[in-house]
Amino acid sequence: MAKAKVFVTLKEGILDPQGQTVENALKNLGYNNVSNLRIGKYITLDIEGDNTKKELEEMSHKLLANPIIEDYQIEIEG
């Protein structure tokens, strides 16, 4: 059994209004040193088998992310 993490983020260059709004809020709190804030999704799951890397790639491509607007990054532990 392995634990996997999938990070889904909007592709670079795609406007992230949510990220911009949060960045502005941080600036309103006085954190003027913040820039390029982007918001994404963080998915965790347990997975069994010998082919987990390939399967996680497939899962991310098919369902977890929309490759037209999103990138994904996979981390497998153990």
Partner: peptide
Amino acid sequence: PGAMKRNDSL
């Protein structure tokens, strides 16, 4: 073709 994003006004 294409994809749908959240409204820019949120």
